[in-house]
């Protein structure tokens, strides 16, 4: 899948430019994720991409110990999370820094920075989250 392809292209281009951009229906204000071309709530096709801060909370998590294919560039174990982004209803998949292997807590406040994940020959922009100090 090409990064610049599909309804979520502005998300990937935003990360490449250093910003978290997320889609919201211009007509009724519903956040649309996965990104879509039509708001299922009101039928509008006017989608606005809005910048959000890279702050949020942990919705859920897993720590992976098994070497699955496509994760070769990640040191084991690594923590993947679902993060609820502040000030919008969207949850994002991402990774969490895990220096001390402390189990993440659901609801814990986190902040993100933009990094990347090497998969085969590509570097995919990735939000790397850390627990707030």
């Amino acid at each position: 899948m090409l990064l610049i392809d599909g309804a979520d292209a502005p998300y990937w281009n935003g990360l490449a430019d250093g910003a978290l951009m997320l889609p919201r229906c211009e007509a009724c204000g519903t956040w649309l994720w996965p990104a879509s071309d039509r708001c299922g709530s009101c039928g509008s096709i006017q989608v606005a991409w809005i910048e959000r801060a890279m702050t949020g909370t942990i919705f859920s998590w897993t720590r992976t110990w098994h070497r699955f294919g496509f994760t070769e560039a990640l040191d084991l174990p690594f923590v993947s999370i679902v993060a609820t982004v502040d000030d919008c209803d969207i949850r994002l998949l991402g990774r969490l820094d895990d220096p001390d292997q402390l189990d993440p807590q659901i609801g814990e406040a986190i902040s993100g920075r933009i990094g990347s994940t090497r998969v085969e020959n590509r570097d995919i922009p990735t939000i790397i989250w850390s627990r707030n100090a």
Binding site: T62, T71, L93, I124, P125
Partner: peptide
């Protein structure tokens, strides 16, 4: 790419994230 970037590449991981939410 959302999954690949998060290192989520296997059914076990997808289900593990849901499981932690159910447990915790």
């Amino acid at each position: 790419d959302h999954m690949l970037a998060a290192g989520i590449v296997a059914p076990a991981q997808v289900c593990a994230i849901r499981a932690n939410r159910m447990y915790e």
